[in-house]
Computed example of a mutant assay.
Amino acid sequence: MKKRKIHRPGAADYQKILQAISPILALLSEKRASSIRQYLKYRLHYLKSAMG
């Protein structure tokens, strides 16, 4: 049986997500966009911790 490599999220993933949603974030208020950025950072940190 072949083992699959598990992708662990990191800073590069965070940057890719931010680049992808930057047009949407530009439409929002700075406060809301900042909150979304912080939430994404938190969730990626959580995933990284949960995956070991």
Rank of each mutant, 00 (worst) to 15 (best):
K16V: 00
I36L: 09
S29L: 02
H7V: 03
R43I: 11
A11S: 12
K41W: 12
L18Q: 05
Q19D: 14
L18N: 04
Y39R: 15
S22M: 07
K48Y: 05
Y39F: 10
L47F: 08
E30M: 00
P9Q: 10
K5W: 06
Y46R: 12
I17T: 06
K5D: 05
K41D: 15
M51A: 07
R4V: 12
L28Y: 00
Y42V: 13
G52I: 01
K48D: 06
Y42H: 15
I36R: 04
I6F: 03
D13H: 09
R43M: 12
R43V: 10
K41G: 11
Y39M: 11
Q19S: 12
I6N: 04
Q19E: 11
L44A: 02
K41Y: 13
Q15Y: 04
A11I: 12
I6V: 12
A12T: 11
A12W: 02
H45C: 07
K3C: 09
L28A: 01
S29H: 00
D13S: 07
Y46T: 10
R4H: 14
A26D: 07
S22C: 03
M51I: 11
R8T: 11
R4F: 15
I36D: 03
L47H: 07
S22T: 08
Q15I: 08
L44P: 00
I21Y: 05
S29I: 01
K3T: 14
R32Q: 09
Y42S: 13
P23T: 13
K2D: 15
L18V: 04
Y39G: 09
G52C: 02
A26K: 05
A11P: 13
Y14D: 10
Q38A: 15
A33W: 04
K48V: 03
K48N: 06
S34L: 12
L40W: 12
S29T: 10
K48W: 06
H45M: 08
R4I: 13
H7F: 07
R8K: 14
P9I: 10
Q38T: 14
L44N: 01
A33R: 05
S35Q: 14
K2W: 12
M1Y: 09
G10E: 14
I36S: 04
A26S: 06
Y14H: 14
L47G: 09
A11W: 06
P23F: 08
R8V: 10
S35I: 05
A26L: 01
A20H: 05
M1H: 12
A50R: 13
L25P: 08
G52S: 03
R43E: 08
Y14A: 13
K2Q: 14
Y46C: 06
M1E: 09
R4L: 15
L28F: 01
A50W: 11
A20L: 07
A20V: 01
K31L: 00
Y46M: 09
L47D: 10
L47K: 03
Y39T: 11
I17R: 04
A11G: 07
L27T: 11
L27E: 10
A11Y: 09
L44I: 06
G52H: 03
A26V: 02
H7T: 03
E30R: 00
K2G: 13
L47W: 06
I6S: 08
Y42K: 15
L27Y: 03
K31A: 00
Q15A: 14
E30F: 00
I17S: 01
D13A: 09
K31V: 01
Y42L: 14
L27W: 01
A26F: 02
A26T: 06
L18R: 02
R32P: 02
